[in-house]
Design a protein around this nucleic acid. Structure first.
Lengths: 214, 214
DNA sequence: CCTCGATTCTTACGCTGTAAGAGACGAGAA
DNA sequence: TTCTCGTCTCTTACAGCGTAAGAATCGAGG
């Protein structure tokens, strides 16, 4: 019944598996991802995947690592100050998250402590001219801000797009100011730029050298 | 075999169900929550819960609403400026999230558009002396910042506590500055206060009346 | 050709959310 | 009291999940 070449080798790699998972999540959302479906996408049974990934958790971790790794390549330009560089990293992070919104809930839920993300932080601390503890506070503030902001913008299920989009039909009598604020639409990019600049300005407002006291 | 009073009424309410779910999540984490286990906690079969909640998604939504509703009661003090009030709301939001860290992944993943959260925003817009669109940007920035920051601090599984805590044993040779920055421990509260003040300062740095141009 | 390790599949278990419908309860009507 | 009816609860069932255990198959090196 079964022909002799029913099961040719699929030529899988851990990388190919993660690639396929990322593509699948981009298309169908994180909730739809299952080992069986991912296997089917690769022409393979579910259990085969366990030869390349210890379990599903590890696979999900690998998805985040993909996004964060892209940030590790952002080198400071010649003479670039910490503030500019941190802004560039923040924008790149947001771009990565927006490019793969299905992964956003994962980024929110799992710690980002891969070697690549540590490298980004180490670079920042070297660049910032603040005491390391303070520098870490600043990096933490910026990265968590980007995550939170992008979550509100695009982190929800593939159906409803964003917080402000799901408010399209709201009670203008009970919330007149909010209705007015929303009249111009979402303006996600503007909103992000405004808030990022405000945060960076606030963070860098103090003098690096006056930090040891108190 | 089964005695005559085997099934007395459980006296459930939607509220009691949500209460139990919140308590269960606080104790065992969101991943452990299942309709069957929650039913068992209430002395009832799983399907019984569906008389009080249309499905599990709605139950999860109800959990977030619990947290956000607590913010709706924060009224501006007499003569209180927008910046102070927004800071108080931010700290209260963080306190709510920290009190129920199991719910944090939900807050990150689901839109916060319940009537109560809209009321908070409307109040903010009335208080801020900025054009509503700009005021919404500011509220959005603060709330998403708090969410992101608290996620990094406590949003992970009940096992590993936080991002910085899971770095306790890191390679001090490869990441010397980071290791130094972590020498004093987590300092979550300090870190939050520093970043929140920076953000608020940055947000309120511009003059409300000079916003119409450009 | 034969063997061996790497790869893939099969089967199975306990768990999940929930659809469908049966059954038991308690309050009001007769 | 007895009957009825709407509300509550349970039973059964199904398709899907992650993955443990082990059998089957492949391709490369001896």
């Amino acid at each position: 019944m079964s022909d002799r070449r029913a099961r040719p080798r699929a030529g899988l790699t851990r990388e190919r598996v993660v690639d396929a998972a990322l593509a699948f999540v981009d298309e169908h959302g994180i909730a739809a991802l299952s080992m069986r479906k991912l296997g089917a996408e690769l022409g393979v049974e579910a259990m085969t995947l366990y030869h390349y990934v210890p379990n599903k958790e590890a696979l999900l971790d690998a998805l985040i690592d993909r996004l964060v790794s892209a940030l590790a390549g952002i080198a400071p330009g010649p003479g670039e100050r910490g503030q500019q560089w941190l802004g560039r990293v923040a924008r790149a992070y947001r771009a990565q998250l927006l490019a793969h919104p299905g992964v956003l809930p994962l980024a929110a839920t799992r710690p980002a402590v891969s070697p690549d993300s540590l490298r980004v932080i180490e670079t920042a601390l070297g660049l910032l001219e603040f005491p390391p503890a303070r520098g870490l506070d600043m990096v933490n503030a910026v990265m968590t801000f980007v995550l939170g902001h992008t979550l509100a913008e695009a982190g929800r299920a593939p159906g409803a797009r964003s917080d402000v989009d799901s408010l399209a039909h709201l009670d203008a009598d009970r919330f007149p100011l909010l209705a007015q604020a929303l009249r111009d639409g979402a303006r996600h990019d503007e909103r992000f730029e405004f808030a990022l600049e405000a945060l960076l300005t606030g963070l860098f407002a103090t003098d690096p050298r006056s930090e040891a006291s108190e």
